[in-house]
Computed example of a mutant assay.
Amino acid sequence: MKKTIILVALMMTQATVADTVLGFYAGVSNWQHDMAGNINSDISSSDRVDIDFDNGGNIFYAALEHPVPFLPNIKIQQNDVQAEGLINISDVAAFPGQSVDVIGDIDFSHVDMMLYYEVLDNWINLDLGLSFKYFDGYSDFNYQELLDDRSDFDDVIPMLYGKGQVDLPLTGFSVYGSVEALSFDSNDVTDFEVGVNYESKMGLGGVIGYRALSVDLVNIGDLTSDLEIDGFFAGINFHF
């Protein structure tokens, strides 16, 4: 995996394609997501807790594209990904043979920083680069103040990044897809997004789409998880 990242980085440093003008992008959207799968917890005698929550959070981003060759463009995105609810657990370690309702609170909020080059920049757009996904979250399971198992995780995961977009001429509409992906040892993280953009001549626009985040990690700090977080989002954006 390290060799793949180094190879992509070397290829990007040789790119001569850059944006013809200075551009700044910003936006906010609301992501209504489902969070399902399992995550480690000592509150269960099996050391794993199955969850299935419906929640939502906001996504904020800002991006700068410039005409300077060899220097990558940059996008920073804050993702609020938190879910909570009741979980019925029949194998609570402290109460063998009993079934209890445990309160679960999972926070996979993170910041993405993408460094990318515009390989194509016309009615068909292609961005390629690297991203760094910084998780600063926790999992917390408690039962009536008698049991409380909290795990915090704080880690940066480097990933490959790509985005393709097709503009629909004379309409202001475009369709796009983007992906961040990483796989090493028994760890796999994929962040996939597709959507439809609209941008007016004033630069103000909107977006609707679907996003799926898969987090399958083993012993990253105190975290072991196999979670799928997916759902639809809608938002507004502005291009200066």
Rank of each mutant, 00 (worst) to 15 (best):
G177S: 03
F132K: 01
H239P: 13
V156S: 11
D136N: 08
I89W: 08
P96R: 03
F192Y: 15
F240T: 06
M114E: 15
G56S: 07
K163Q: 08
D140I: 07
A36K: 12
L71S: 05
T190I: 15
L7S: 11
D121Y: 10
I39L: 00
F173W: 01
H33D: 09
T224S: 10
G137A: 00
S200V: 06
A9P: 06
V100M: 11
F70L: 10
P96F: 03
D148P: 09
K201Q: 15
Y176N: 09
A26K: 09
V8S: 10
S90V: 10
Y198N: 08
H110A: 10
V189S: 08
K201Y: 14
S46T: 13
G172L: 05
V100K: 11
L115K: 02
S186L: 10
V68Y: 08
F173S: 03
N30H: 14
H33F: 10
G23V: 09
K163N: 07
G97A: 03
A93D: 14
V218N: 15
I39V: 00
I106Y: 08
Y198A: 07
L204M: 07
L146I: 12
Y25S: 06
E228W: 15
A93S: 14
S151H: 13
V156C: 09
S99R: 08
S183C: 09
L217G: 05
A234G: 09
T190H: 15
I208T: 12
I220A: 11
V100L: 12
G209L: 04
T4S: 15
L126M: 04
L146E: 11
D101K: 13
E180I: 12
S29Y: 12
L168A: 05
G235T: 03
Y210M: 05
V28L: 07
F108D: 00
D52T: 00
L223Q: 04
Q77P: 06
S183M: 10
M202I: 14
V166L: 11
S178K: 14
D127K: 08
K3A: 15
T190K: 15
R150L: 09
S90Q: 13
L223W: 01
V215S: 08
G37V: 05
G56N: 08
